[in-house]
Nucleic acid binder design. Structure first.
Lengths: 236, 236
DNA sequence: TCAAAAGTGTTCAAAATACACCCATGT
DNA sequence: ACATGGGTGTATTTTGAACACTTTTGA
């Protein structure tokens, strides 16, 4: 365990999304400051200052892992926020004074995002994260710092990205129904689509292959299950 | 004239593009360190450390203006580069020692980009920019720091962006021919298009309106001139 | 037998692609 | 008169959008 020097001016924040029951969710932490009795009821995206000897990508991975236990996530950089008064709420100032060596330092933050299948990960909050919870994007409260703005930017990033790449599969179980996939697209793009057209378009790509399996135990005609064929995708 | 405090850990770099004679160009500076006799032959993107009391966007505008004289440019953030050894060439280290108060500080840099019509601006290098010159993107030499990487990222950003918005007009004179516009698209996208299809597609948009004017003094059938109609564009 | 979601085809309009010749000008 | 780039139309294919009924299952 080596000692790392902290850069007081640069942080990373992570907007990690998952998908459950037709709704997009984002991973938030409840902060707490070890000793202090300050009352902090603001939730936040997992984020913290970077070390001097790591890249931004590494910092994002480390910080996410330290606060939430999620490891080996493929994080992508979204945008950098550097408004000099992005830290101006009294609650944020109080909290920083409780946990930071240079609580008054100006901090610019680099936002990262990723998509995960939540059932593959066990959330284990630690460090200053009292809890880490999945919150439906529609239900996200007023957050710490400028984290609502960061979240919005990450959502925009997702919207653009899903046009370019078949994202969805990162968020769904390995076997999924086309209805699940469609709901996911609808959630991300905040739109709705015609079922027949959506299926035709998806199946045209040929990365989505039908399995010889069906849903079980549903009170209606069981849906066929599909999976994403990575090798076919990478051929293009 | 107020005093500004410098943040030693965060800089901005600007990749400013223009278009001339069928080729994309980028604005580079030749650095020099006032007093010293260090020999520095690396060109660089205009960039410098930020002040504590300005936003990143403001910093980008200020720095660009200080180094090249370009003002009131609409700059957009592209990406942030934070590799801990992005400053490792001997020439870069020497140069930083000559001009910076904390030459050893780790610096992460936020890249910005913009498109300009070069004939509308007079380049006036100052501060540590000995010269500022337009260099064809195809002829860009090995640059200072990780500026080649930054330039590549800015070019990628352009490519994506031109699908979403009718960029071109930022780079062409107010009156332009469709052949110029086509060459611009070809330069940015590194591709070539069929003339008739390109024209049809462009004119379908209706932001490009034909003027009652033609090219003069060319040794062939003179091309009709067009302009970009901003108001029509903003209606959509 | 009913409720609930799965699954399936056709038609129309718009957009993308491929392709070759005549025109206006300056020299 | 000729060299140079400007300007134009059609046919074909591909893609996107709109739209309604039958099927399978568990309760």
């Amino acid at each position: 365990m080596t000692l790392h020097q902290i850069n007081p001016n640069v942080s990373v924040d992570c907007a990690i999304f998952s998908f459950d029951q037709g709704a997009l969710e984002v991973l938030l932490i409840e902060r707490h400051a070890g000793n202090s009795e300050i009352k902090d009821d603001l939730m936040a995206l997992p984020g913290n200052l970077i070390y001097e000897d790591e890249t931004l990508d590494e910092a994002a991975n480390r910080v996410l892992s330290e606060l939430t236990g999620l490891t080996n996530i493929f994080l992508e950089q979204v945008y950098t926020f550097g408004n000099p008064n992005r830290i101006s709420k009294q609650k944020d100032l109080d909290w920083l004074r409780a946990i930071r060596a240079s609580p008054e330092a100006r901090v610019i933050t680099v936002a990262y995002t990723s998509l995960v299948k939540k059932e593959n990960f066990k959330i284990q909050p630690s460090s200053f994260a009292k809890k880490a919870v999945w919150v439906k994007v529609k239900d996200v409260p007023h957050l710490a710092f400028d984290h609502n703005e960061i979240l919005d930017k990450a959502l925009d990033y997702l919207k653009h990205k899903i046009y370019l790449e078949p994202l969805g599969y990162e968020l769904l179980p390995d076997k999924f129904t086309l209805a699940q996939l469609q709901k996911l697209y609808e959630a991300i793009l905040e739109d709705s689509f015609d079922k027949r057209n959506f299926r035709r378009k998806i199946l045209r790509t040929e990365f989505i292959v039908k399995l010889d399996e069906k849903q079980q135990g549903v009170a209606h005609k069981p849906a066929g299950l599909y999976r994403f064929d990575k090798s076919r995708f990478h051929k293009i």
